[in-house]
Design a protein around this nucleic acid. Structure first.
Lengths: 333, 333
DNA sequence: CCCCCTTATAGAAACGTTTTACTTCCGGCG
DNA sequence: CGCCGGAAGTAAAACGTTTCTATAAGGGGG
């Protein structure tokens, strides 16, 4: 409970508090001899700068917010790893928010971030309401969208083309001979789910099929458990020749349920996931999937955010769109 | 950039700033009519409390730190989910730190947490140096150990018995007929790795084998990739009849490498992981593992931490030790 | 030798909230 | 009828930094 403040350091080093602050923030501005004396005092007394006082006075914090849809999904974990790597060298802190797909929870998290006056926010939004993000911007908090295209021009966003991904995935399934395809998706409030479905329909149309024949099974969450349940429904209603899942977690659940019911994959049903998480390659029947530059998503978004915060004048907003990549494995042999 | 402060709210509602603060923090203390007027002003002006100012004056923040060894490991993700669930209802923020097994990085993260004057810290320490944590305590920051036994009596800790887990795992392998066992582990600076090894040796001794015959392969990280590499080494040096891995990520890597080399699991080599992450059940050959109450670990640790912060006088420090549970699957049939 | 300019440091105000001590107002009790 | 006590609200100080302005010291040129 020492609570040693900048004043104590100043007294101990025989300088003024202002000089200590300069040592901390603009070391170049202070004479080497003085600086050393101050630094000695700092470590002798075990001084740790009070971040809140600093934030209050300086008007900005050394903290960013990261709001994701599901921290249990390795996709977002890898994004977070990218964020962490960029941020930790700078002594920034990351406040993590998990919206769990709920807009209410996301709102609560954003409010917490606003109270903390974070420097900026990286967010994969749960829904399609840009207004809530604009509120943050009104408070002077920069926002960069992750895995989501920009809502507006004066905003950075790093995304992956989900329509193209959905199209490639289903085109691949169709190329393997499937004519009936089911799409197992998470909540259709989630943009990614909607766009991958649109991509799927594009592929069907291109193959001369009726896009409306795409059977859509909407799961409540994007988890393996929900995938199992969705697969049970599919089995009950009659299996299609191919199943495209909105992410790998769903796909792993579907795979488990199918195999448990004695359905052979890919012989009877071909299966595609999305995200290409590490575990996709390791599953019972290795899973074909759409690979995304996940870690890069986190890294680049963070770099854009920090640039926007540090150089508000010269910063050029960017809309980056990656293309996903098909990874074919056993589940679509 | 509105920056509406408590003063603006006070002026707008025709009260003093102190009263607004009371509405915010002790709503019972202010007359209903006044309260309503203030609340109206708050929402009309879009006021958001400045957390740093609050922290500075009040002397404590509404933030906790969470420091884990590897955010990419689903084990820790699930712990984090438990933490998040407890904390988010209270409007607390979680600052996430990923030590990636490096003590330096952990130190940096702890420093950031200290600067932020977090209310408390949940940590799965990377190494065995209690001093760094004592430094936090000197700053009035409570620390609860997660997945680690207490360093000292006046401290909360929530752990799982790793010696028992290692013993049970290897006993299970031996019960399936294996006589030669390899232990694929992460860095032996990590306590869990050491204790699971000790448990493994106990099991060997109990089975009448020489504990020193346990072949130990130490990987640099606890990831699937490192597991693949370790398996390659094992193959080169001659395979044991059973492999016990310090966690499921390593085990999945080992499994992948073995299968790719044409080694049959479990016929030629039996394999056990640890943690029972979701993906263990879904892997090519489903993975036997040691299940831990992961989500509960996070929940309970958080509850202990908050109790310690909120009721420093009545709080009773607890050392909770769970027992892991063997889950046998195909990899040890 | 003096003056001015540069550089280094000191001093003080300000950031937005919480909290303590104090005032005011009422109703009830002695 | 006066006083006391509680309720409701106010005013002002304080939290630990940062940053602005001003001052002091030192050095070089006239």
């Amino acid at each position: 409970m020492a609570m040693v403040s900048i004043k104590d350091v100043a007294a101990h080093a025989g300088v003024s508090p202002g000089t200590v602050s300069n040592v901390l923030n603009r070391p170049g501005k202070v004479a080497p001899a003085t600086r050393e004396r101050v630094e000695a005092a700092i470590s002798e007394l075990g001084f740790v700068r009070h971040g809140s006082a600093s934030t209050l006075r300086a008007g900005h914090s050394r903290t960013i917010g990261l709001s994701v849809i599901d921290i249990g999904n390795p996709f977002f974990t890898e994004v977070a790893a990218g964020v962490e790597d960029v941020v930790s060298e700078l002594g920034y802190a990351v406040i993590l928010g998990n919206s769990a797909g709920s807009q209410d929870k996301e709102d609560r998290n954003l409010r917490v971030l606003a109270e903390h006056r974070v420097r900026g926010v990286l967010i994969t939004p749960s829904g399609e309401d840009p207004a809530r993000l604009d509120r943050l911007r009104e408070h002077g908090i920069s926002v960069v969208l992750v895995d989501h295209p920009a809502h507006r021009p004066d905003q950075c966003a790093v995304a992956v083309d989900d329509v193209a991904g959905g199209r490639a995935a289903v085109a691949h399934l169709l190329s393997k001979g499937a004519r009936t395809v089911a799409y197992v998706t998470g909540p259709l409030t989630i943009r990614q789910c909607v766009e991958r479905r649109e991509g799927a329909k594009v592929a069907m149309r291109a193959a001369g099929l009726d896009p409306d024949d795409l059977r859509v099974a909407e799961a409540a969450t994007m988890t393996a458990r929900a995938g199992e349940k969705a697969a049970a429904d599919l089995i009950a209603e009659g299996l299609p020749e191919a199943v495209f899942c909105a992410n790998d977690l769903l796909a792993l659940g579907v795979l488990r349920a199918l195999l448990r019911s004695g359905v052979r994959v890919p012989e009877e049903v071909a299966l595609m996931g999305y995200d290409d998480i590490d575990f996709a390659a390791a599953s019972t029947v290795s899973l074909s999937s759409m690979r995304q530059p996940t870690y890069q998503l986190g890294r680049i978004a963070t770099e854009l955010l920090l640039d926007e915060c540090d150089n508000p004048d010269t910063h050029a907003h960017q809309h980056i769109m990656f293309q996903p990549e098909l990874v074919a494995r056993e589940s679509t042999q």
